[in-house]
Amino acid sequence: MRLLRASLFRLVLWALLLITMFPLLWVVLTSIKPADISQALPPVWHFHPTLANYRNVLGGNTYTSQSFSVLLIHSAVVTVAATSLGLAVGIPAAYSLARVKFRGKRFTANWILSTIMFPPAVSVVPVFIIASRLGMMDTFPVLIIPYAAFGLPMVIWMLRSYIRQIPFEIEEAALVDGASQAAILRHVVLPLLMPGIVAASLLSGMLAWNEFLFALTLTRSAAKTAPVGISEFTNMYGTQWGSLTAAATVTVAPILLATMILRRRLVEGMTFGAVK
């Protein structure tokens, strides 16, 4: 009886998993189907897998104006830059909120958290106008700066909870040994903060890599990113299924891999140290 219940439970669990994974499996399946059967109904389940779609998409052999690999490079540049910028300003800010005592700190911390509520759909209009006046349309900074800001409230709050968990005695000891404030931050706090930095980078990198609205609105070609490129495989003339799914697979895979590997770090960070 017990055994039966246990195997029934597992059956349900795996069935649920299959349903959850289905959209992703469909993407991968369609991406390796030959072009002539990719849209066939009833769906063809037996076929010779092909990498032609990947070759076409990455080699720029599609109907779009730009090779998708160029867009992937744009995405990578923007993501790395936005994440680095977010960490560069976020780590000192988190340290200040966790360790330094001054008036107005609590208010500032809560204000920083509140900015997370500012919808990109609201800020995109002013940013669009500012960017065009400054002649910055279709450049990397016009994406990097907003993306860094989008992730910043979470980055700061996540890192603050990590810093609070570092025993202050360690820093005190370094202080007594005559280390400067900067040296303590760099050689004592930073190494101990690595798990937090990993979690914050993953979150902020995910936001930047997947962002759509700003990229759609503020870029044309020179800074266009992968999500916008994927959406262009479908238009009023129809959908290029093979290209779309191959591009989607290539774009989504690195994030999914990172999420799987760094799952525990991510939870740790998102629960703000509520997990002990």
Partner: peptide, 18 residues
């Protein structure tokens, strides 16, 4: 667990297109 959480990493554009 590792497989179940995958959707949260998928770009919303991609999941919406799919």
């Amino acid at each position: 667990t590792a497989l179940f959480i995958l959707p949260l990493g998928v770009a919303p554009v991609v999941s919406a297109l799919v």
